[in-house]
Simulated assay, not measured.
Amino acid sequence: MSATYEDRELPRPEQQDDIAPRLALKGPAASGGLLDGAWWPRSRDLARELPGLVEALDPLWGRITRVAVNPAHWDAVPRHVPGRGHVVKVGWFTEELDPHKVLLLSYSVGRWDLLVVPPGTGAAAAERLMAAASDPDAAPLTASALMAAEESRHGAGAPGADTETTPVRDASAPVRVGSTPVPEEDAVALAVPVIAPGPPAPLVAGT
């Protein structure tokens, strides 16, 4: 898959789908490691997925101002996406950045690295990956190493073999945390609460 780099018109916040992002983050006591948690988007459309991620993380990590991805697994990379009251710049790196990771920079605090669980991943595999990426006591593995380990242990059902894109919204079961039913594939992500992260990792060039 090769992503295009596009400059869409920024949608107004009310145009975004009101769907809670599926996140698992390390707790405040965690330090070290190569990842700060995991994100399980519902599609490969960054312009649609990133605003919700940014909105969820802003209160925890300070204002997110920049996001960087490897375009290998995204349909398109927008130049910027809307935050709540601000604009977030989006960039991409084909060699410097792990294709299974998203990097976020905060205006006043630092940077964080999240494993990106592929959208079409089954619930069991997603649970294992999100738990591994957010475990403060786990071995310090890269995002790609975690994906490879999952595929090695669980074979064809692992996310590395997945080629489908999960629909962004299931119209028959809309998601609103705490107010309406949650689709089965979201249950595992919501069972892992969003936890305020620990101190940010230092910004290191070339990662």
Rank of each mutant, 00 (worst) to 15 (best):
A3T: 04
Y5G: 09
E6N: 11
D7N: 13
D7V: 09
D7H: 12
R8H: 11
R12K: 15
R12A: 15
E14Q: 08
Q15Y: 00
Q16R: 11
Q16N: 13
D18L: 06
D18F: 06
P21I: 04
A24N: 01
A24P: 10
A29C: 05
S31E: 12
S31W: 08
G33T: 10
L35R: 09
G37E: 06
W39M: 05
R44S: 11
D45Q: 05
L46R: 00
L46H: 01
L50C: 04
P51W: 01
G52P: 08
L53Q: 03
V54A: 00
V54P: 02
E55G: 03
A56T: 05
L57K: 05
W61R: 11
G62D: 03
R63G: 06
I64Q: 12
R66S: 07
V67F: 06
A72R: 15
W74D: 01
D75F: 07
V77E: 04
H80F: 02
R84V: 07
K89P: 02
G91P: 00
F93R: 09
E95L: 09
E95I: 04
E96Q: 14
L97C: 01
D98F: 09
P99E: 06
K101F: 05
K101P: 02
L103W: 05
L105P: 00
Y107S: 15
V109D: 14
V109Q: 14
G110D: 06
G110Q: 05
R111A: 13
W112R: 15
V117Y: 05
V117Q: 06
V117D: 06
P119Y: 04
A123F: 05
A124F: 10
A124P: 02
E127T: 13
E127F: 11
R128P: 01
R128Y: 04
L129F: 03
L129W: 09
M130P: 08
A131I: 12
A132W: 01
A138F: 07
A138C: 04
P140D: 12
T142L: 10
S144R: 12
M147C: 07
E150D: 14
A158D: 04
A158Q: 01
P159N: 09
P159V: 12
G160P: 00
T163N: 10
T163R: 07
E164K: 00
A173G: 03
P174H: 09
V175D: 13
R176D: 15
R176P: 02
S179Y: 14
T180E: 10
P181A: 15
P183K: 11
E185W: 09
D186V: 06
A187M: 08
A187R: 12
L190Q: 10
V192R: 12
P193F: 00
P193Q: 04
P193M: 08
I195V: 15
I195F: 10
I195N: 09
A196N: 13
P197Y: 01
P197H: 11
G198Q: 01
P199K: 13
P200Y: 05
V204G: 07
V204Y: 02
